[in-house]
Design a binder for these strands. Structure first.
Ligand SMILES: [Zn+2]
Ligand SMILES: [Zn+2]
Ligand SMILES: [Zn+2]
Ligand SMILES: [Zn+2]
Lengths: 153, 153
DNA sequence: GCAGAAATGATACAGTATATCATTGCTCTG
DNA sequence: CAGAGCAATGATATACTGTATCATTTCTGC
């Protein structure tokens, strides 16, 4: 994990480049996500910004901010867990590929990796065979992290 | 889609074989799911059994029944949509492989196919590389069905 | 400064899921 | 067949997740 401030700077630059503003509140939410390897729900984050910054946010505001951060590719929404996680590629140069997430179902720790392109091709082919169209090939896998697997064993 | 009564018989046999009971209520819920190609939420199903059988079920009861049906491999829960769909393999002989679901994000129509075993191997390998353990390789893909794609175009 | 747009606040509510304790009904044994 | 024990369901309350709507504040460009 790199320095959070460096990532925040990169996020700010990325927003500027797309004509968007990374406001204080948005930055607070993003910071909360960056401070943890674990996926957090919208309500976890409402609690988080309150504890860390004394800021009160209504659900509406939080969801709007999360939508914004997602549209700027700074975070990802995990459908499998109804939680959010920062994007691992905020401050790297290469363009963002289709993400694949390994989610620990015990502690919500998340690893983001790029999907193998062969795999996407294979999925797309399968989907087309039954007449469907793939909208988003984002994959989320139900996993156990090393720590939790050790405890369970 | 085969005859629903034939599938219900198969479901009943399958439950007997595992020492479980397919009670009237459980059968009503399963029937509702079998009557539609579309994924339905727990609350959709509460409405469904009311309309079709005049039976009133509380959420607690419905979730318990859904858990039961899932544990008997008669239905699947789709995390992506927070909805439930019958299993396509209730009355076929071959053992149930890892399922993969193509979910129309517009109309909730679902296609269940078996995951290519090469793909599972590839996923497992990837997961192990980062020290995680794959708990369930069930894949759910965000798609559009042929009808909805045609309308959107 | 001022108009217009973007962002946030505030209130209410819809939809999804679980906790807890009570009651009913089935099964098995004696 | 009685009655114990367990499986299934009922009932009530509540927590969690997400959206609709309208008002207010803050920023930007002129
Ligand atoms: Zn990412
Ligand atoms: Zn873990
Ligand atoms: Zn199935
Ligand atoms: Zn459709």
């Amino acid at each position: 994990m790199q320095d959070i401030n460096k990532i925040l700077d990169a996020a700010e630059a990325s927003c500027s480049a797309s004509g968007a503003r990374l406001t204080d509140k948005r930055k607070q939410v993003l910071s909360c996500l960056l401070q943890s390897q674990k996926a957090q729900s919208a309500y976890d984050l409402i609690q988080g910004v309150k504890e860390n910054y004394g800021a009160t946010m209504q659900p509406t505001t939080m969801y709007r901010i999360l939508d914004f951060l997602e549209s700027e590719n700074l975070i990802h929404k995990l459908q499998l867990a109804n939680k959010y996680i920062y994007c691992s590629h905020i401050s790297c140069d290469h363009s963002h590929e289709v993400p694949q997430f390994l989610i620990c179902n015990s502690c919500d720790r998340v690893v983001e990796i790029d999907v193998n392109s062969e795999l996407i091709k294979s999925l797309t082919r399968t989907v087309e065979q039954v007449g469907y169209t793939l909208v988003s090939p984002q994959l989320e896998l139900d996993c156990l992290c090393a720590d939790c697997a050790a405890h369970a064993a």
